[in-house]
């Protein structure tokens, strides 16, 4: 379990876009607990884009379904943030998982992107971890997003993997580090490293030490990401 009150070198700034006031209050608390300063709260995509322009935050936490259409306003805003302000990491929160949104978000660059189900905010520690990972330039994909991607690729090479290796692959795709994967599966880090080597070999993926490059390779294999 990560230390919630870990000191961060400098105070990073975040904006939050969420139309439900109730949830926004809670989100602000969690984001502040993660060590961010919440500089703006937005109720719709327009306000979000204006706030990002004004504050140039390190992180934007964005709800997908917002006024006026309550469809995918958040995703479209997030895409435009990623085009215009690549330095701002974006974490999307969604009521349900849609791999196409994920594919769009990851299309150009997998660093500094997150896509989680809304209900994950309730697991405060894990959510804080994901917030920090995304702000640090990492990736945080919801297990369900990964599951959908795996369904799509439920074909040939994946069937060579053992059940345990599939678990590890899914956690890699979520953007977790070796230590994170080891903690999740309750195994040693060296065992995880061994699994990862096997997976990369079986899927003909290049070996990469940096976490985000590894995520990139895995996601590319799963059919998303550049």
């Amino acid at each position: 379990m990560p230390d919630v009150k870990r000191a961060v070198p400098e105070v990073r700034r975040a904006v939050i876009a969420e139309d439900s006031v109730l949830l926004r209050i809670g989100l602000v608390k969690v984001v502040e607990m993660a060590g961010f300063e919440v500089v703006a709260e937005a109720g719709d995509a327009q306000e979000l884009l204006a706030a990002v322009e004004e504050h140039r935050p390190e992180l934007a936490v964005v709800d997908v379904r917002m006024p006026p259409g309550f469809t995918d306003e958040g995703v479209r805003a997030a895409l435009s943030i990623r085009r215009q302000r690549p330095d701002t990491a974006v974490l999307i929160l969604s009521q349900y998982v849609e791999e196409r949104y994920a594919a769009d978000l990851l299309a150009t660059n997998t660093s500094g992107v997150g896509y989680l189900l809304k209900q994950r905010v309730a697991d405060v520690e894990e959510f804080i971890e994901a917030l920090r990972r995304v702000a640090d330039g990492g990736t945080a994909l919801d297990p369900q997003v990964v599951a959908q991607l795996l369904v799509r690729r439920a074909s040939d090479p994946l069937e060579r993997l053992t059940a345990r290796e599939r678990d590890v692959l899914a956690l890699m795709a979520e953007g977790r580090s070796n230590a994170g994967i080891a903690a999740q599966l309750v195994v040693s880090e060296s065992a995880v490293a061994k699994h990862i080597n096997n997976i990369l070999a079986k899927l003909d993926l290049p070996k990469a030490d940096a976490d985000h490059r590894r995520v990139l390779a895995v996601l590319h294999f799963l059919g998303v990401g550049g």
């Binding site: 439900s20 109730l22 949830l23 989100l27 009521q95 209900q119 905010v121 405060v124 520690e125």
Partner: peptide, 24 residues
């Protein structure tokens, strides 16, 4: 739509607050 706008948001908020209580 009604459930999404109402009960679902409330429940997530409730779970979040309980999670905050647990963490703090």
């Amino acid at each position: 739509r009604d459930l999404h706008d109402g009960a679902q948001q409330r429940l997530v908020s409730l779970a979040l607050n309980l999670g905050l209580a647990k963490a703090t």
